[in-house]
């Protein structure tokens, strides 16, 4: 699947089906800090995503990002 991240905007390719909450854990993204978007829908942590999906992890934190 293609996962779109921001700050900086980038895409990562991940293979295999998994739950959204596991995907976030693998990418070290706190669930409280993003919306998980597939097309027109928001996904909850138990939703399963697979190879054909394009998933956007849209940050929700106002005030930009922390300096790495």
């Amino acid at each position: 699947m293609k996962v779109i991240l921001r700050y900086p905007k980038r895409e990562v390719e991940i293979t295999g089906r998994r739950r959204v909450k596991d995907l976030l854990r693998e990418l070290d993204v706190l669930p409280e800090t993003v919306l998980v978007i597939r097309g027109e829908d928001l996904l909850t942590g138990d939703a399963v995503v697979g190879d054909e999906d394009v998933i956007e992890l849209r940050p929700v934190i106002s005030g930009g990002r922390r300096r790495p």
């Binding site: 921001r6 849209r58 940050p59 934190i61 005030g63 930009g64 990002r65 922390r66 300096r67």
Partner: peptide, 13 residues
């Protein structure tokens, strides 16, 4: 969705 460029590194974050 993009944030203010000056906010990077802000303590509040």
């Amino acid at each position: 969705v993009e944030e203010c460029p000056f906010a990077e590194g802000a303590t509040s974050l």
